[in-house]
Design a protein around this nucleic acid. Sequence first.
DNA 1: TATTGTTATACTCTATAACTATA
DNA 2: TATAGTTATAGAGTATAACAATA
Lengths: 132, 132
Amino acid sequence: MELLSVCLGVYYGEFTTAAASENLTASQGKALTVLRRGPAAMRTLARVLTCDASNITGIVDRLEKRGLVRREPSTSDRRIKNVALTAAGENVADAIRAKMRTTQAGLDGLSDEERASLHVLLERVFVPPTGP
Amino acid sequence: MELLSVCLGVYYGEFTTAAASENLTASQGKALTVLRRGPAAMRTLARVLTCDASNITGIVDRLEKRGLVRREPSTSDRRIKNVALTAAGENVADAIRAKMRTTQAGLDGLSDEERASLHVLLERVFVPPTGP
DNA sequence: TATTGTTATACTCTATAACTATA
DNA sequence: TATAGTTATAGAGTATAACAATA
């Protein structure tokens, strides 16, 4: 428990620093990281970032003002706005990922077998089994 | 890397919820958790919470107003104020810890051997070797 | 001179509540 | 009626810069 807290603190600290080096807050960096997988509705973004939907407006506002994301109307539901990374946003998201050096180096220091083992153990601790 | 981010989210979310159930923010809860190990100077607290020293004033102010911590002058250096948990603060810190049920249950689900293995792997990834 | 804690300031994140436009 | 996004608001966290007291 203690060690988990320390490790996750290191990880979060490194992510915050990486985001800051691109002049982004941790929340903004996290939003870009999420959008790296593909566009998402404002509501979806709120759920993934585990914050109230009203907060997303401001976060996306600031990212959009810097040209890192854009809002696109949904074709199927006119209430929905999808947020997508711009080319500049993709570059920044990639840059943040690349700057997670300590964590990445630590992972690279493990053998494939050890990495797989860590993966399994972390999943068992943190990813709750989906009941029927 | 991806999984680490998920684990961090789960752990941090659970901690935030546990702190909120005691009407505390995550930062306040973290401060109590740190002080559980013993009193610390304002400056030390800032370093552990990885934030600027100026922020600690407000965080400790709010905790002190609720009677969870107290400021004590250092006997050896009159510039220093040590922050210590009150009895009430200890109770709240214990309550937060007890409410980290999902994480604790996940850890309890591992065998002693698996837990030891996880410990070793996490240390290798996150705790950098101290060079000479 | 350097360090500790504080204050003042500005920005961001956060939840709540109320609003609009759609469904 | 219910949902998606927005706005307004208030409280909290955050870094920066400047300050008084002490080392």
